[in-house]
Design a protein around this nucleic acid. Structure first.
Lengths: 276, 276
DNA sequence: GGTGTTGTTAACAAGTCGTTCACACCTACT
DNA sequence: AGTAGGTGTGAACGACTTGTTAACAACACC
């Protein structure tokens, strides 16, 4: 079932795992309480809240219920059922309206859907299908904005996904897109060591070729640009043979006790450079 | 809290004024061309464009078709039909996917809907119902995130959604519809960088085909028209590799050559560049 | 049917950025 | 300590992105 093993670069931060619909509030309007009972069992196992009604409440009451979806049998609405649906749709444009009926004619279904129903299901109907259809309707209003674009604060930096840019005291670090994505990925997993392979796969989007040094080069560019604005912190730490770890730290004074991972003085490298 | 704003903003896509669905592009993938023929009669009378196919095209081809809806019989997709639907949904999140089959099991329907189908209709099916259901799905599409209808003041410009036009000191910039919608979108997210893909999707309503330069061309037209009336401001800023950002700024012409490109770094020492 | 407007597509020019290479330096291990 | 391989650094080339223009197609209006 491994359709895509692309680790999404998104959603790295908090979100609980299930991508399915979070928790919905629904109401079932029907004479037959049996169907409501069966549905409730499944709905509540999903964390949904269900309310069983025997008639359609007034608009004000409906509004205060803040329903995500209303499941309704139009026979309860009398001859003006279509107008009622139209009225509901007009006043609660965000709420899903799902009609469930005994076998009906094409004309009725078309009329109901045109009046504003989001779906029309013929009873008897399996609860699971009803739930799936409600989820499908709910899904339609999500996908516009997917990413969590929360600013990340680390040391003197603020990393803003909505700007594709990092800032230090309000000044832009002037990162390119790849540089930013790399920093964003690292900063989204503070304290974690990320292997080069994983970094490459999640930022570049495909598998790293053997001997590819792109990650190293970009780490260097990042360190350089960051140091221009925030030289007092160490943000990106190298783990030899493994990868890199993001963690804003104020460099400690030389301590012999400090173990290997701390790359104490790298500045000496610059000294001998002039000859070249 | 979905009920706060009762006034829905007509999504930019097309729609002149009538509440019913404007003109949709749909494709029917089926072995039985008869159904497509019957449907076409009705669809074209509504001004819809219909395309009959006997197999699912590649994603690139689908993208360039800019379909609003795809009507498909999963028996054409082979045993991996659910995965295919999932794939389509992932790559064309805005396109409606309507499945039409011979009588099916609850399990199949749930699977298909969970995989991303917006509706599952059992054949034989009346064309009118199919059309009504597609319209219903399309109706759901808009609320994603409406733009403000309040006038936006930015620099010397005032952008009025109620007039579909922008003004500078009372004079109309004479923007076309698309030009205005692009400007409106940008100006409604001041300071934020919007990716081309997102811009295209929200202004044009479709997923951007690879290599499409429409956004760039319209950005240029916008800049040109704006500069005619308000040459002292920079409104639209390019973010290389990402997209555009709206933010009225007075250019810093006074600075001789210091802060413009890359400040203070010898990076400017690029070979032939400095001479110019 | 003609005309003007609007949107799309193609092509070229000008820049920018990403990859690669070479080499210096460092770590870990024998 | 010596060595092999991993990492830091700088520069150059090439691929890609963007600006710009113009021709073309689609559409509404007269």
């Amino acid at each position: 079932m491994s359709i895509t093993e692309t680790h999404r670069v998104e959603h790295l931060d908090a979100g609980p795992s299930f991508a399915s619909t979070p928790a919905l509030r629904i109401a079932v309007v029907d004479r037959d309480t049996g169907f409501g009972t069966v549905l409730r069992r499944r709905a509540e196992s999903l964390g949904w809240q269900q309310r069983d009604l025997t008639q359609v409440p007034a608009i004000d009451a409906l509004v205060s219920m803040r329903l995500h979806a209303l499941v309704i049998d139009p026979t309860l609405l009398g001859p003006q059922w279509a107008e009622t649906i139209e009225y509901l749709r007009g006043n609660l444009p965000e709420m899903a309206i799902v009609v469930t009926t005994a076998p009906s004619s094409v004309g009725q279904r078309v009329r109901g859907i045109r009046a504003g129903a989001d779906d029309w299901i013929t009873k008897p109907c399996h609860p699971e299908e009803l739930i799936a259809r409600i989820e499908s309707i709910m899904r339609r209003r999500k996908p516009a904005q997917g990413l969590t674009r929360e600013p990340i604060l680390a040391g003197d930096l603020s990393i803003r996904a909505d700007q594709f840019q990092a800032f230090c005291e309000g000044r832009s670090l002037d990162l390119t897109r790849r540089e930013f994505e790399l920093l964003h990925l690292l900063a989204d997993n503070p304290g974690n060591v990320l292997e080069r392979e994983e970094i490459y796969q999640r930022v570049w989007g495909f598998q790293m070729a053997h001997g590819d040094r792109s990650v190293d080069v970009f780490i260097r560019k990042l360190r350089q640009k960051i140091a221009l604005f925030s030289p007092d912190w160490d943000y990106i730490h190298t783990h030899f043979g493994v990868g890199y770890r993001f963690s804003p730290e104020l460099p400690v004074a030389e301590k012999p006790a400090s173990i290997k991972t701390a790359p104490a003085k790298r500045k000496t490298a610059k000294a001998g450079k002039a000859a070249a």
